[in-house]
C-alpha cells in the first residue's frame, strides 16, 4: 500500500511540473510585451523598462521559471493588475464560496444520481427505467446556464421564494448547487445503473437470492455496497467537471467565487490572477484524481495486492 502511495505521488510530480511550465509559458504566449501589459497602456518606455526589471522579465527564461516556481511554492502569485492587491488575497476571499458550491452540488448529484440509477436498474425495462434514462440523457444535454435562468425566473422572479443570486444564507445555495449538480447527477445515474446491472449478474448476488435474503437487502446491502467502488471513482472524476462547471454557474447566480473571478480577470486581462487561478484549478484537479486513486485502492483489496 505504502509503495503504491509513494509511486502514485511521485507520478504526479511530472504532471504538476508540466502544468507549471504551461502556466509559466502562458504569459510569454500572450501577444505583445508582458511588461507593457503590466505597466498599462499609458506607461512610458521608461516605466515599461522598470516593470521589466522589477518582474525579472529581462533575465534568461530558465532563471525566470525557477523564480516563478520559488515564488509559487511560497504562495507569492504577484499583484492583481485590476485591484493592485496581492493575488493570494483576491483568491483567498473567493475560494470558500466555490468550495461550498461544488460540495453542495456534489451532494445533489450523488443523491439524485444514485436514486435514479438504482431505481432504473432495479425496474429495468419498465417505465421507471425509461423515465430515469430519459431524465439522465436530458440532464447531460441541458445547458446549465439555461437551467439556472429558468429556475431564477420561476423561484425568484415569479414566486419570490429564493434570491436571484448572491451568497449568504442557505436559500442562496439551493438553486446554484442544484443547477451545477444536475449534469453530474445525470452522469451518475447512467453510471450507477450500468454498475448495478453488472453486479446483479455476480455469483454472490445470486447466492444471496438463493438463500432467501429479502430483495430489499439484496439491493441495498449486497449490490449497492459493491457498486460503490466504481461509483466513488466516478464521484472523484466528476469533481473536476464541477470545478469547471462552477465557472459558468457563478456567472449565472452572481456567486462571489473563484470561477467568476476568473471570468472577470479574463475580461480585464488581469494576467497574474488568470495565471494563479489556472494553476490552482489544475492542481486541485490533479490532487482529486490522486485522492480517487488512493480511495479506490483502499476500497478494493484486489488491486492493493497486485
Amino acid at each position: 500500500m505504502l509503495s503504491f502511495l509513494i509511486k502514485r505521488l511521485l507520478g504526479t510530480i511530472p504532471v504538476v511540473l508540466m502544468v507549471m511550465i504551461a502556466v509559466f509559458a502562458f504569459v510569454h504566449l500572450l501577444p505583445g510585451d508582458p511588461a507593457r501589459l503590466v505597466a498599462g497602456p499609458e506607461a512610458t518606455a521608461q516605466d515599461v523598462a522598470a516593470v521589466r526589471t522589477a518582474l525579472g522579465l529581462d533575465r534568461p527564461l530558465p532563471q525566470q521559471f525557477l523564480t516563478y516556481v520559488g515564488n509559487t511554492l511560497q504562495g507569492d502569485f504577484g499583484t492583481s493588475l485590476r485591484t493592485r492587491r496581492p493575488v493570494v488575497d483576491e483568491i483567498g476571499m473567493r475560494l470558500m464560496p466555490t468550495v461550498w458550491l461544488t460540495l453542495f452540488a456534489m451532494i445533489w448529484a450523488v443523491a439524485l444520481g444514485l436514486l435514479i440509477g438504482v431505481v432504473s436498474a432495479v425496474r429495468r425495462g419498465r417505465w421507471q427505467d425509461y423515465g430515469g434514462m430519459i431524465l439522465a440523457v436530458s440532464g447531460i444535454s441541458f445547458p446549465p446556464f439555461w437551467l439556472g435562468l429558468l429556475l431564477i425566473n420561476l423561484f425568484s422572479v415569479r414566486l419570490g421564494w429564493l434570491p436571484t443570486g448572491g451568497y449568504g444564507t442557505w436559500q442562496h445555495f439551493l438553486m446554484p448547487s442544484f443547477t451545477l449538480g444536475l449534469g453530474v447527477a445525470a452522469v451518475m445515474a447512467r453510471f450507477t445503473r450500468s454498475a448495478f446491472i453488472e453486479i446483479a449478474r455476480e455469483d454472490y448476488v445470486r447466492t444471496a437470492r438463493a438463500k432467501g435474503v429479502p430483495e430489499r437487502r439484496v439491493i441495498w446491502r449486497h449490490s449497492l455496497r459493491n457498486a460503490l467502488i466504481p461509483i466513488i471513482t466516478m464521484v472523484g472524476l466528476q469533481f473536476g467537471f464541477l470545478l469547471g462547471g462552477s465557472i459558468v454557474i457563478e456567472a449565472v447566480f452572481a456567486w462571489p467565487g473563484v470561477g467568476r473571478l476568473l471570468v472577470d480577470s479574463v475580461s480585464y486581462r488581469d494576467y497574474p490572477v488568470i495565471q494563479a487561478l489556472v494553476l490552482m484549478f489544475s492542481i486541485q484537479f490533479i490532487l482529486i484524481n490522486l485522492l480517487v486513486d488512493v480511495l479506490y485502492v483502499l476500497a478494493n483489496p484486489e488491486i492493493r495486492y497486485q
Binding site: M18, V19, F26, F241, L243, I247, V248, F281, S282
Partner: peptide
C-alpha cells in the same frame, strides 16, 4: 497535461491568450 485542466478552464485560458 491537457486532461489536467477541466475542459472549460482550458478553453478560457486559450481565450485569455
Amino acid at each position: 497535461l491537457l486532461l489536467a485542466f477541466p475542459g472549460i478552464l482550458l478553453a478560457i485560458a486559450v481565450i485569455a491568450i
